[in-house]
Amino acid sequence: MENVARIIETEDGSHSLLSEQFDVGYHSKYGAIQESEHVFIQAGLVPAMAIKSSVRILEMGFGSGLNAYLSLLFAKEQQKVIFFESIEAFPIPTEQAASLNYPTLLKGSTEDFLALHQAPWNEPAVITPKFTLHKIAGTIQSTPLSGGADVVFFDAFAPSSQPELWETPVFEKIYQAMAPGGIFVTYCAKGVVKRCLRDIGFQVEGIPGPPGKREMTRAIKINT
């Protein structure tokens, strides 16, 4: 099912989308690129890549494709290998993705960004020699996860919009799909979310958030 959303501009000049279905933005109003770079790349992917030459990323919410694109650029710049699995229940039209300004602002390849959106659903697609994308159309509750995730980008809409995605059954499923030492990152810093993650077995920490947000959450799967 395609989501009905319109393109908006955030304070750092980068585009975001406003979901008319859920009445919520896909990114921070203070800056889409700077939020994604801070929360998912710097707090999640960078520390994972510090000890591995290749990683598996599991993303909840493909959305605009920004997190995947930043990861692709990271893989290209650092010469690392990334397998990126992303679950999305409401994909945006490819024509709308073509209007997003991420490649221009990030000085990256427009062709690579569009390839992320044009890639087939429900099967792996090699986007670059270092980056493979596996987009899954559906909900995380109904999707079998392949497992072995080194990093989890939890980028669902806020708990106030989709509370069912921020509850124990979803987090337990993700925990089971992660590799030992795997890193879970999300922009959300609500106490109830952190308590839920701790109860499941994560080692949880609140760390500084992106501009406009005091704190975010990072959790580590510590069992073997």
Rank of each mutant, 00 (worst) to 15 (best):
E37R: 14
V46A: 13
S109N: 09
S146H: 08
H134Y: 09
S54W: 10
G31P: 00
Q176P: 08
F84R: 00
E205W: 12
T10P: 01
I127S: 00
F40N: 06
L197P: 03
A219S: 11
E205R: 15
G147H: 04
S161Y: 07
N122L: 07
Q42I: 09
V81M: 12
K130L: 12
I33M: 10
I140H: 05
F184S: 10
G138F: 02
L73G: 15
P144K: 09
E37G: 12
L105K: 03
L197W: 13
S146K: 12
L114W: 03
G148F: 08
P103L: 04
S146R: 12
W121D: 04
A115H: 05
T10N: 02
H27P: 07
T139N: 10
Q203R: 14
Q42A: 13
S146V: 11
S109V: 05
A48T: 08
Y175I: 01
L72E: 06
V152N: 02
E95V: 05
L165V: 08
I200N: 05
R214W: 09
D150Q: 02
L106C: 09
I183T: 15
Q118T: 07
I33N: 04
S142P: 01
R214S: 10
K130A: 13
I200P: 05
P93D: 07
F153A: 12
G201I: 09
E88I: 00
L17D: 01
L17Q: 01
V46G: 09
L105Y: 01
K194V: 13
G201R: 08
D12T: 09
S109E: 11
P210V: 11
I82F: 03
I57S: 05
T139L: 12
A156D: 05
K135E: 10
N101V: 08
D112T: 00
W121Y: 08
M216A: 15
F84N: 00
F62A: 13
A189V: 11
C188Y: 12
P93F: 03
E35G: 10
I92P: 02
